[in-house]
Amino acid sequence: MKTAALRYSLLGVGFAVLICAAAAMYLRASASGEIPRVQMNAENVGPRQIEDLTGKSIPRDYALAWQTMAQALENNRTDMLNGYFTGFEKDELTQRVKSQIKSGLHTRYQDRGHKLEAIFYAPAGDAMQLRDRAQLDMQVLDDGKVICEEPLNVEYVGIISPGADRWVVRQLQAVGTQKP
């Protein structure tokens, strides 16, 4: 009777370990490979209304911006920032990557999605301001060892502008945390 209980306990623990390992592998894979989920609400934007095509391209480009930023910070590659960042934001992130290289650090983001709200669209269509409620898991690694791991519910304010064939991020500023 006692042996059977022990056997079932071990089986249960083994099963739990297996599930955790599978979840960890899945999360790691999606951190680098998948495009983050971005939902955009443009109901209250002004003074200019968002055109249909713009309403589709912004969530796509913003998601790609987050994906490339996560890749840049995980792999310490400044070249990943060339596609979707410009101006001060690109300078800031480049500085961050360079200082990570100098300190031997890496930052890994697991992106759980963004709720984007367009809050200002310039009359000439040359800039848009967004509010992003982002859900992320962040790990800071020193020499491959995780030294900090935390789930984040952070609110960002961003400014994006149209480039030649995409929207690029000019400013992305975390302004506070929020309840999940």
Binding site: D91, E92, L93, Q95, R96, S99, Q100, S103, G104, L105, T107, V140, D142, I147, C148, Q173, A174
Partner: peptide, 13 residues
């Protein structure tokens, strides 16, 4: 101890 400070434009140790 080691102090790490990770911000928007910096990561120091």
């Amino acid at each position: 101890a080691d102090l790490y400070l990770v911000g928007p434009a910096s990561a120091s140790k």
